[in-house]
Nucleic acid binder design. Sequence first.
DNA 1: TTTGGAAACTTAACACTGTAAACTATTTTT
DNA 2: AAAAATAGTTTACAGTGTTAAGTTTCCAAA
Lengths: 211, 211
Amino acid sequence: MGIAERKERHKEDIKKRILEAAKELFLEKGFEATSMRNIAEKVEFSPTALYLYFKEKNNIIYALHQEGFRMLASKFQVLAMVSDPMERLKAMGRIYMQFAMENSDFYELMFIMKEPLQYLEGCPDEDWQEGEKVYHALYNTILECQQKRLFSNIEAHGLSLMIWSTMHGLCTMKIHGQLDHMTSNKNILPEVESKIDYVYETFIAVLERMA
Amino acid sequence: MGIAERKERHKEDIKKRILEAAKELFLEKGFEATSMRNIAEKVEFSPTALYLYFKEKNNIIYALHQEGFRMLASKFQVLAMVSDPMERLKAMGRIYMQFAMENSDFYELMFIMKEPLQYLEGCPDEDWQEGEKVYHALYNTILECQQKRLFSNIEAHGLSLMIWSTMHGLCTMKIHGQLDHMTSNKNILPEVESKIDYVYETFIAVLERMA
DNA sequence: TTTGGAAACTTAACACTGTAAACTATTTTT
DNA sequence: AAAAATAGTTTACAGTGTTAAGTTTCCAAA
């Protein structure tokens, strides 16, 4: 009977509408200030109707978390055009950083907030596929670099995780304002218009120097 | 008149008691789960009495944020014993990491939560002295390294910020579980008992190689 | 085509949250 | 002793996530 399918599709549609509303509110007011009641109002449902489609709020958050990763993955697509692995590595860092700056709310959802991964803890055997995918893009690039005799004698997983740590630390310190609240180097680096770019350049210089 | 002083001291005592209670609750139940009412109950006050001593909850959070920095600073004291700057840099990283692991709630308060810095925004001309102090310890060590011809031709502020980014990124990825949710390298790094230590070793290797 | 039951949705309610205003009791000053 | 300032409590507001009970809508079998 095709009617069950149609219902199923309808349900998926509503789920999408809810997520769309949640996303909009989330982007315009920030996550903290977005409540279930807000979302419900936007989709013209009663507050508790959302619970028919998502077991709890963390569920909605996790769905947006996944969408964020899809967004990042689509930005990463252009990297396929870059054949030289070292150049690809550098471009990857730039894109990652740019994504974090342009979609800082999503970045927070993907890497800073603990609710999404916390939700994953609840689902056993479910691992963090989204993060894994990003990690692999990085790891494989490092491996390719090593095939070109770069980063020799350094274990690739360790290096990959270290590079990700640096990028993540840089982005979070920018997003949370620590980078800008450090006024002492403002006087000494007056010509630098963007601190985060400056630090990234330094990082690249370090990597190229030791490669 | 010494009576005003005595009253002032009394007030400070109560403030301390409140902070002590807040800290305990915070450490045992995590920040999210600690409410003003919880704290008030612990010090046997009515909930709103706390507002006579702290203008708002962020105020209490900021006070603990400061205490966290004092704790870190006291751990950093042993670094004065290390005369070689490169060795000191490495020890500093270890201590920073260890502090973040042993006091992850405080670390979150100091570097991850946005409330404290958000509170600072409200107080104009108040800059983030706590962070600045830590930064200077790092920056000066880098300068000393450069006097010994290490990290030559690299601007010290950029390098300092990059190093901090790496350490911060590493600690947050550990605390938030991203490091552990990355199972793909678990199979490949079976002998590694602590991923964070392993990545740190890699980082040190990178720094020493390019120095 | 009417009836029974499931599915979709709403209303009411619970146990919380941070915080402001109003009120009361205590202490200090005049 | 009366007035004023201080310290603290009670009450209240507007919000939160979520559950349970009630209501409406829709679809399948009699």
